[in-house]
Design a protein around this nucleic acid. Structure first.
Lengths: 332, 332
DNA sequence: CCGCTTCGTCGAACCGCTTCGATGAATGTA
DNA sequence: TACATTCATCGAAGCGGTTCGACGAAGCGG
């Protein structure tokens, strides 16, 4: 920095001023400084700046250590929104394990982050979250109740209801669920929403099975499916894929004999056989709003016009059809 | 830090010593300092340390801005390996666009990273890579030739050959490819390896189609498939899924009429209909080795025993079968 | 033409930590 | 018991920026 100042014929403070908005510096001086910076290939030292300003401008991001489409989509959106807002995204991933989550949190705290975005919507995370007093603005994605901080989410219940009603409209009366892991908020939210729609319709709620979001677990869970169920609501698309595979192995045709629906609308869902009826959620939008909320708080511009709830929509494809011999009107 | 020192009844330098290995400090003093740290909830300031040591201990990671299974798996492995080695992973993602890549690189350089891992194996990245002189150790994942730095990769050619030979063994003689984007190294590598196997076998090489890794693009490309081809080799699993869907829409059965193979072995591939024959690659292992290489260089322990080539293996499932009426022997 | 305001620049202190040379205490040896 | 060593601890000087108060040089009105 001193080199730059010398080359430009000014003092280092002036260089600093140019670097930070350049107010109170004559345009010609600014030019000279900028030229000097370019010529020397000078790059300000982040650590020194952070030290002096006592502002890290870093936002921690806690992501799940999975390669799932949804979380990863949100992650990228968050990362870029953060950078666009002039902050540095610090990404950490942790499996759904309290100890690992704790470690990741510690890691982020060590970097003196100014805020935190949590994409890992499992109960074990929220438990660890109160470690960070109340000094740190936090926003959690796709969670139900938030003990601390704000939350932005796709309206899981709304999506689940869409799915349930679709099946009801088709004429299904025996609908079973294969939910996601119980310690994931969105899994629980979807499960309950479907149950309540069925209950309201006066239908018997078949005991829900569950998996761990993977196609493998869907395949496995399908073995325990109630043989009289004509439709199965899966916790996500991957599990639905596994279920369809299992059903096929069992010689039961989808959707002719049993309808299957997923949740998420991952890119592959449009190309499964049969293409999957599911609920589309805009993961990226959720991420963007989360950052907007946080940055608003950080920058003092409240940004209270951010709607924390993103509406999902139903995508009807070919894995659903009217049940075989219930309400008449067969097939398409 | 001074508070801690005071509480422990020592000077701040002793606290510093305790924090950094504690050599030359009496065990009892160490204890006292540690207790003080705990009591005060003291957390060393990263920026100050970086400034004083002129070592950021940060390793930059440039990842693609996609949610694909492969890169994301490598990413998580890299992240954790980096932390385990005592370095701070700084993750950045960028789409396959030179400008965006450049920006990400600048961002990382601003944080004064000490090394760089690149998971984005497209040509546009390598072009930008020489920006960072030769002072920065770099390792690139899944690339072909590396102009700069080291490379770790799953042996794409080997995997592609496995696939081609499998098809040949089954009796296929008209094999067409739907490759990945031409500017991705692994797409090119796979494509060429398959071509060379076919050429060596004295077969006609049908003109290759291509897609952009997505299932959608596979679906679209399938329309242009040579009607006489009995097997199609796809650039990755997603595209294979799209192709199978398209074939199904066209009324052509897989694998009875045409065999389809993918590449990657994403978790869903085991549950597509039919389950996909593909090549499994250990993405996480590639990431781990990349970090081992880098950390070795950084820490002065060469670690030259790291094999930069990871072997993939063939996973035969049900999307491949002998061709209809060529070499006799039908069915499974 | 002069005194005062405003603008652009400078000098210096400080952010929190590391590290080198120095000092005092503890240990070993004759 | 005196002296040479070794070990634990301390004092102070930076690391590369930011920022506040000070100050000289223009720009202004009367």
């Amino acid at each position: 920095m001193y080199d730059v100042a010398e080359l430009a014929g000014v003092s280092h403070q002036t260089v600093s001023r140019v670097l930070n908005g350049g107010t109170g510096v004559r345009p010609t001086t600014t030019r000279r400084v900028e030229d000097a910076i370019r010529e020397l290939g000078y790059r300000p030292n982040r650590a020194a700046r952070t030290l002096a300003t006592r502002r890290s401008r870093a936002i921690g991001i806690l992501a799940p250590a999975s390669a799932e489409f949804g979380p990863m989509s949100s992650l990228h959106a968050i990362e870029h929104a953060t950078r666009d807002a002039g902050y540095r995204p610090l990404i950490t991933s942790a499996p759904a394990d309290p100890v690992a989550v704790r470690e990741s949190l510690e890691f982020l705290l060590d970097q003196s982050i100014e805020a935190l975005v949590v994409i890992a919507p499992y109960t074990s995370v929220l438990g660890e979250l109160d470690v960070l007093g109340d000094e740190l603005p936090v926003v959690v994605l796709n969670t139900g109740e938030t003990p601390t901080g704000a939350a932005v989410a796709v309206d899981q219940a709304s999506g689940a209801r869409l799915l349930a009603r679709h099946l009801l409209d088709l004429g299904h009366r025996r609908i079973q669920q294969i939910a996601g892991p119980a310690d994931f908020f969105d899994a629980a939210l979807r499960r309950r929403a479907v149950d309540s729609v069925l209950t309201e319709a006066g239908l018997e709620v078949l005991p829900a099975l569950s998996g761990d979001w993977t196609a493998d677990s869907g395949y496995a869970a399908a073995a325990a499916l109630d043989p009289t169920a004509t439709a199965v609501v899966c916790g996500n698309d991957q599990m639905a894929l596994g279920v369809i595979h299992a059903l096929s192995d069992l010689g039961r045709r989808v959707p002719e004999e049993v309808s299957v629906v997923g949740f998420d609308d991952i890119p592959e869902s449009a190309h499964s056989l049969p293409p999957l009826t599911t609920v589309h959620q805009d993961f990226a939008e959720v991420g963007r709003r989360a950052v907007a909320l946080l940055v608003g708080r950080l920058d003092g511009t409240p940004a209270e016009d951010v709607d924390p709830s993103v509406e999902p929509w139903l995508v009807v494809r070919e894995s659903t059809a009217p049940p075989r011999r219930e309400d008449g009107e067969r097939g398409r």
